[in-house]
Amino acid sequence: MVPSLLHTTILTLLALAAFAGNSVLCRLALTRTDIDPASFSSIRLASGAVTLWLIVRCRRARPELGGSWSSAGALFAYAAAFSFAYMTLPTGAGALLLFGAVQATMIGAGLWAGERMSTGQWGGFVLALGGLAALLLPGLSSPPLGGSVLMLAAGLAWGIYSLQGRHRDDPAGATAGNFLRTLPLAGLLSLAAWPWMRLDGAGVLYAVLSGAFGSGVGYAVWYAALRGLTATRAATVQLCVPVLAAFGGVGFLGEPVTSRLVIAAAAILGGVALVFLRRTDHSG
C-alpha cells in the first residue's frame, strides 16, 4: 500500500534530518571531544550494524541479511574517509563536497552505461561541477585541501555503494548485512590506529548516535519513505541534506556561513536539480 502524502512527507523529513545529523555529530565529536576518527568510524559502523539487525529482526522472525563484500568495502571506505575528512572540514562544506561527489559519481556512471542527457541536463551538470570547483579554489575561505580530497573520496565510495544497491529486493536486509560485513574492516582500522586511539564518553555517545540513529534508523525510515516517492523526487529532495547540515553546523558549532559556500551550494544544488528535473520532463 502506498503511504499517504503526509506520512511520506514526515518520513522524508526525518530521514533527511538523520542524514544531515551524521555530519553534525561527526564534526561535534572530532572538534568538541577527544575521540579519534578511526574510533568514531568503528563505533558508528558497529552501532549501525546492531541497530539495522534489530530492525530487520523485528520485521521477521528469521531475519535474512543480504549485501555483499564489495558493497561492504565501499561502505567502509565511505565511513572512514568521512570521519577523517571532518577533522578539518566545516560541517556545511563537508556535506556539500560529499553530496556533490555522490551525485557526480552516479550521473557519471549513468553516462558510462549509455544514458543520454539533454542540453539542459548537460548545462546543469557543468553548473554543478563549476560550483564544486569554485568551492575548492584556493582562498581565505576555501576548505582544507586534505579534508576536501578525503570527503570527495567518501562521496565516490558512497556513490559506488548506492549504485550497487539500486535494485535490491530487500534494501534494509542488504544494508544490515553490509554493515555487519564492515566490522572486520573497522577492527583492522582501529588496530592500525591503536597508537593514536583516544576515547571519551561524549565522543563515544556521538558515534553511537550517528551509527544508531543517523545511519541505522535513518536508512530504515528512508526506505519506508521511498515507497511514496518517485525516483526523481527521491533524488531531488536529497538536495536538502547539505543545507540542513550547514544550518546544523551554524547552530551547534557556531560555524560561519561564507559567501563562497552560499554561491557554491547554489551552483551545485541547482545544477543537480536541473539534471534530475530535466530527466523527468524528457521521460514524459
Rank of each mutant, 00 (worst) to 15 (best):
L127P: 15
S259C: 02
A193G: 04
C240F: 08
S142I: 02
R27A: 06
I160T: 11
D34F: 10
L137S: 02
A245T: 07
G124V: 03
P242M: 03
F19K: 08
G216A: 07
L189Q: 11
G73W: 03
W194L: 13
G214I: 00
F19H: 03
L180H: 05
L28N: 02
V272F: 13
A81D: 06
A104T: 15
I35L: 09
G203T: 08
L229R: 00
R62D: 14
T232A: 13
G216K: 14
G66N: 06
L6M: 15
R57I: 09
A266L: 14
V257T: 14
V149E: 03
L11S: 14
Y206R: 04
S70W: 01
S47V: 02
R168Q: 14
G146D: 03
V204K: 01
F276L: 12
T33E: 14
W53P: 07
T230G: 14
C58R: 15
V241W: 00
G284V: 03
S47Y: 04
G271K: 02
S70R: 12
I43F: 12
I10T: 12
S215Q: 12
S162N: 04
A49P: 08
V241F: 00
M117K: 14
V126W: 06
S71R: 01
F19Q: 09
L65F: 15
A245F: 10
W194K: 05
A266Y: 11
E255P: 11
P138G: 07
G177F: 08
S70Q: 12
L229P: 07
I263V: 15
P184A: 09
A128L: 07
A72D: 07
A74Q: 12
W196C: 08
S215R: 02
L156A: 12
L98N: 00
D170Y: 10
P143C: 05
G48P: 07
